[in-house]
């Protein structure tokens, strides 16, 4: 991370005593553990994260993995240097003499700020890029689904085909067709979320909030959840969304009283 700076830093103070080079040891430890940690994150992340079932879901999962990979060296730095200090520099009893003060080097501080700044800037730009990519994905063929929350159930409308699904029914979406949800609420604040598709928006009474346009890519059955505390049966406000083939969807929407 900032090896040169730290090297320079202790160079100023390093005493004439015969001691192992603590800094080199800690840095080697840090590099080794970071590399191991990053490899482990890449290997296990597919097992920890639920599989993405849409374009957004996949992007989100890779963002999570990327952030975690970046997080490994940062956290390892603190862990290694902290635990190294606690184990190597510890004294048994109340110390009778003081330690030699470390002189802060401006170069270290500036270097530290530069590294955290670059990391931070990278994350912001990355986030903005992903965000605008999602929110500006225009499509001519978007399926609109109006979602209305109320205590404690969801109502789904398909205005383009004139169908409504109310109550504890399973709703369906066609695979590989962009879909956008217009979310609102009849009573209190609710949160509309389908984790596997990577969509989430608050359902505000009196306002309509749009989710990003999402294209489901994997046929399957996914959970719709309420993610804002909305009263007594908040945790029971679950429904299912099925992503099905276009033919199945057309059949289903007709059965709901709409036209395909």
């Amino acid at each position: 991370m900032s090896e040169t700076n730290i090297d320079g830093n202790t160079g100023g103070v390093s005493p004439a005593r015969k001691e192992p080079n603590h800094l080199r040891r800690a840095i080697i430890l840090w590099v080794v553990l970071s590399v191991i940690g990053m490899v482990i994150v890449v290997i296990i992340s597919p097992f920890v994260l639920p599989p993405g079932a849409s374009d957004l879901g996949n992007t989100d999962n890779s963002s999570l993995t990327l952030l975690t990979v970046l997080a490994v060296p940062v956290s390892m730095f603190v862990f290694v240097f902290l635990l190294y200090s606690l184990f190597v520099f510890r004294v048994k009893d109340k110390p009778t003499e003081d330690a030699v003060p470390l002189k802060p080097r401006p170069s270290l501080q500036i270097g530290w700020m530069a590294i955290t700044g670059v990391l931070c800037l990278f994350l912001v730009i990355y986030g903005l890029f992903a965000f605008y990519q999602e929110s500006s994905a225009a499509s001519t063929n978007t399926l609109i689904v109006k979602v209305t929350a109320q205590q404690w159930q969801w109502t789904f409308e398909y205005p383009q085909s004139g169908a409504t699904s109310r109550g504890s029914q399973v709703i369906e979406l066609p695979v590989n067709r962009p879909v956008q949800f217009y979310v609102t609420s009849d009573d209190v604040l609710h949160g509309f979320a389908i984790r596997a598709l990577g969509v989430r928006a608050d359902a505000n009474p009196g306002e309509v909030t749009n989710t990003a346009i999402v294209t489901p890519t994997v046929i399957g059955s996914y959970a719709v959840q309420c993610v804002e505390l909305c009263g007594l049966f908040h945790s029971y406000m679950w429904e299912q969304v099925k992503v099905v083939s276009v033919a199945d969807f057309n059949f289903w929407i007709t059965s709901q009283g709409g036209r395909p």
């Binding site: 902290l82 110390p95 470390l102 530290w112």
Partner: peptide, 13 residues
């Protein structure tokens, strides 16, 4: 940075 720098090479009781 400040805390690690304080622990580093201290007489850590």
């Amino acid at each position: 940075l400040a805390l690690i720098g304080t622990f580093w090479r201290g007489k850590v009781w």
